[in-house]
Amino acid sequence: MLPGLRAGFTLDARLEADSEHLMWLGLCELRIMNDSRWPWLILVPQRPDVEELHELKPLDQAMLTFEIDIAAKALKKATGCSKINIGALGNIVRQLHIHVVARSEGDAGWPGPVWGHGLREPYQRAQLHRIAETIRAAL
């Protein structure tokens, strides 16, 4: 079992395939989406069989809100973006996860949503490492 991983919790295979581990927070695993078009973090609460925010216990809801806040602030600091988009859709990947996306006027999909816009453009390993370190430093 990975450090920080909760007993009985398994990360959805699609999240694992599309993102890279960044670090463990108190409740969530913080991941970075492997799409160089947008700096994009994903928070995954380490709770088995949870699909919706309201299914979390109140203390976990508070912790998730805190972790979203620190992730959003770090992403804004690390990227200098003009807008942070936060969403929990779950229509395709049912496991509860929160998207925190840095947006800037003129980016690949501005002003529309990032979902359904073109094809994912994976980072080169060195790029991914650089942005991951920048975000870790901002945290």
Rank of each mutant, 00 (worst) to 15 (best):
95 Q>Y: 05
14 R>G: 06
67 E>T: 11
96 L>N: 01
135 I>Y: 07
114 V>N: 06
129 H>I: 14
68 I>Y: 06
124 Q>M: 06
73 K>C: 04
66 F>Q: 15
118 G>E: 06
111 P>S: 05
88 A>M: 01
33 M>N: 10
66 F>H: 15
1 M>N: 15
79 T>P: 00
36 S>L: 10
19 S>N: 03
91 N>R: 01
115 W>I: 08
93 V>N: 09
5 L>D: 11
122 P>S: 09
37 R>S: 03
112 G>R: 02
139 L>C: 06
29 E>R: 06
2 L>R: 15
82 S>K: 07
114 V>W: 10
112 G>E: 01
32 I>F: 00
97 H>R: 05
124 Q>E: 15
26 G>K: 05
4 G>L: 07
137 A>F: 13
30 L>H: 01
35 D>F: 08
3 P>T: 14
81 C>H: 04
113 P>M: 13
107 D>N: 08
63 M>E: 14
127 Q>C: 11
80 G>D: 09
121 E>A: 13
27 L>G: 05
117 H>P: 11
41 L>E: 07
25 L>A: 07
93 V>L: 14
127 Q>A: 09
120 R>P: 02
107 D>I: 12
65 T>H: 14
49 D>E: 08
69 D>V: 13
91 N>G: 02
13 A>D: 09
105 E>T: 13
28 C>G: 05
48 P>T: 03
33 M>K: 04
52 E>C: 06
54 H>C: 15
63 M>K: 15
12 D>W: 08
77 K>C: 10
4 G>F: 02
57 K>E: 11
28 C>N: 10
20 E>W: 02
3 P>Y: 13
80 G>A: 02
13 A>F: 06
39 P>I: 11
105 E>N: 03
73 K>Y: 04
111 P>M: 00
93 V>S: 03
38 W>C: 07
135 I>T: 10
64 L>P: 00
98 I>C: 14
116 G>A: 09
107 D>P: 03
20 E>H: 14
109 G>R: 01
28 C>I: 05
130 R>C: 15
55 E>T: 08
2 L>C: 14
104 S>W: 05
114 V>D: 01
80 G>C: 00
37 R>I: 05
103 R>P: 00
14 R>N: 14
113 P>Q: 07
7 A>E: 08
116 G>H: 13
75 L>R: 01
56 L>A: 00
102 A>Y: 01
78 A>Y: 09
12 D>P: 13
68 I>L: 12
9 F>V: 08
121 E>G: 14
13 A>L: 12
120 R>D: 01
7 A>T: 05
106 G>H: 08
81 C>M: 02
63 M>W: 13
133 E>N: 04
135 I>C: 12
19 S>E: 01
103 R>A: 12
137 A>S: 14
21 H>V: 12
9 F>L: 04
64 L>A: 09
93 V>K: 01
25 L>E: 07
114 V>E: 12
64 L>I: 15
107 D>W: 00
56 L>N: 12
116 G>K: 11
98 I>Y: 02
46 Q>T: 00
119 L>I: 12
24 W>S: 13
136 R>W: 08
57 K>C: 03
18 D>G: 00
123 Y>Q: 13
4 G>H: 14
132 A>G: 07
65 T>N: 09
46 Q>D: 03
46 Q>P: 03
63 M>L: 15
88 A>W: 00
125 R>Q: 13
107 D>K: 10
128 L>P: 00
12 D>F: 08
42 I>L: 09
2 L>N: 15
